[in-house]
Design a protein around this nucleic acid. Structure first.
Lengths: 334, 334
DNA sequence: ACAGTTTAGGCAAACGTTTGCCATGGTCAA
DNA sequence: TTGACCATGGCAAACGTTTGCCTAAACTGT
């Protein structure tokens, strides 16, 4: 199409400059607060026009020029998971407060999509990346090597190092173990997905180690389940658990979604939760307080993640950080 | 900063052109598939270089030039609501399949934020807008007037007209009424937020009209509740309902979140759900199947929304549509 | 041989911004 | 008087693309 319609209502520097009878450079400088480069009269006139016409600098022009894009990309494995939604929402708010716009990309936990979004966002001059539960992928490795500003959330950088925001997963698992023991559980179990991410592995290890520490001889049953998401995984793992040896009296579900899967399995198989089998989750989705009174869970302060993630990103860009931020967690008893 | 670092790994048309010994125009044309404008040898050479260097057109340059940005903005009132997450996820997938990148903006249901994002996205040359549960706002009115491509989802254009994707809310409310009557409910009620959006109003009206139609003399109690979200609204409304006249034996919750609020109120006040008080929701969040076996709900096919929304948007941009798309719903009995 | 057409490809403008550098003209001190 | 310095502001390049127009050279038909 050759009829490039002028976007209506979008005032450009040139428009202001023409009307004020000055050059584009002058307007640009004044718009950017460099007031010492023009006479008071000019400054006043240009500022008035800027206000009247509602001029806002065009971010695309800026980006192209090589300056800032005010764009930050968040890559998350799936928006359906309430935990992801909570992280996304809080990060979006924090970024907006810092003057950034967040682009949210759903990678569906697929390395190829993660790569595609990494490329797409880089070519849009994203000033930073927030990778929630990242998976290993070629483009990510290249980005890490190039030292691009990336904050990893929930799951650590698969290539080591880098900024990280999350919790102490081993401790969370240990706290869950303490809780079950304090409830008098004698035949505990743990369910988990067939492929273990570092996050889940740490939680499970922390759980088991604490059990062994406090009850040296205690047997801990384990079951894994396959599935596209943690709901299905939890369901499958629970079924295989009871098929192998009946219901345990307590079970660690390393994510709330897995606990939901367990709950469904119990309902279908006549297991009574939490009376016969007490689950303990990790996440503590906000919805739990409303509709899952049977689920005690380690609360991860996802709503507080946003601020920390943004602080990390800013520090990263300023070259003043390459550390880890571990937020506190708290077991919610229900 | 004056040291504008050349983005690494980003090949430009100029790079290819220099290496091939041809002009930028020639490379651009070949990259865009206009193969008739160069000799076979040149085409071959340039194509080889494009492949070797992994050249990808820079979307920012393209946007600025006035062409396409491949950017679509979705403005949603909050990411926490599972229904929004479902819509966002399916739309993102459909847009990606169509070659677009979706920017997800959380408006927190605030007109000022909606305006801010509308402006920000327009100045980034967004090619279309998807407004989920839009609120009235000055910038929206202006956008509608200018005829920008906007698809409204869930809630209709507050200024009338425009493309819309949603369900027949009156019928959904009527179906809920049928369900309660079929369950033998004799003292029904409805709870809703203090301020009624068009969506909620239609559902409530459809519900009440159907009750009156089938049981002319039947009294229908109503209670409203205030709160920042539907969970709180539902909770508050339920409390005020029972304070006014005890538990109804059936109650329409015009969104699942309100039903969750009711559930909590019942738990705290000793109401037995669904035995004493049978709720019927609208939405049927995916999680219901797992952890809310007490909730029958009208399933809205949010996962199917994405495709329709994108089809609408494309048609809108092609100038071939200005209609409504109503998807079917189905009451899920639990 | 010559006019006309096709082929192959370059030039330059435009999108909106930022910024280093240059050009006036004036003021001030020695 | 002259050199230095400051105030004011414009020029132009650069970022990466796309595309209308132009120009050669090489064909084609008669």
């Amino acid at each position: 199409m050759s009829d490039r319609r002028r976007e209506p209502g979008q005032t450009s520097l040139a428009d202001i400059a023409a009307e004020a009878g000055v050059s584009v450079s002058t307007v640009s400088r004044i718009a950017n607060g460099d007031l010492g480069r023009a006479s008071a009269a000019t400054v006043e006139k240009v500022q008035r026009l800027i206000a009247e016409r509602g001029y806002r600098p065009n971010p695309v022009g800026r980006s192209l020029r090589g300056g800032e894009s005010r764009l930050v990309a968040m890559l998350a494995p799936n928006l359906d998971n309430p935990a992801m939604a909570a992280i996304a929402a809080s990060t979006e708010a924090a970024l907006r407060a810092a003057g950034y716009v967040m682009v949210l990309c759903d990678t569906h936990d697929r390395p190829d999509l993660q790569d595609e979004y990494l490329r797409a966002m880089r070519s849009r001059f994203a000033e930073g990346f927030i990778l929630v539960s990242a998976v290993a992928s070629a483009e990510l490795e290249a980005s890490v090597k190039r030292g691009e500003p990336i904050v990893f959330v929930n799951r650590r950088n698969p290539y080591g190092g880098g900024a990280f925001v999350g919790i102490d997963n081993r401790r969370a698992g240990a706290d869950a173990a303490d809780y079950l023991l304090d409830c008098g559980v004698r035949a505990p179990a743990v369910i988990h997905p067939a492929e273990l991410s570092s996050t889940i592995r740490e939680r499970v290890e922390g759980f088991i180690d604490r059990l062994r520490e406090r009850r040296p001889g205690m047997a801990v049953r384990r079951a894994e389940g396959a599935g596209a998401n943690h709901l299905d995984c939890g369901y499958a793992a629970a079924l295989s658990l009871i098929a192998a040896g009946g219901w345990p009296d307590g079970v660690l579900c390393p994510s709330d979604l897995m606990a939901y899967g367990l709950f469904r399995a119990a309902r279908e198989r006549g297991g009574r939760i939490p009376d016969d089998c007490r689950p303990v989750g990790i996440d503590d989705n906000d919805l739990n307080a409303w509709i899952a009174p049977w689920l005690s869970s380690v609360k991860i302060p996802y709503r507080a993640f946003g601020e920390r993630v943004v602080a990390c990103l800013l520090a990263l860009r300023a070259g003043t950080l390459d550390g880890e931020v571990l937020l506190g967690h708290e077991l919610i008893r229900r």
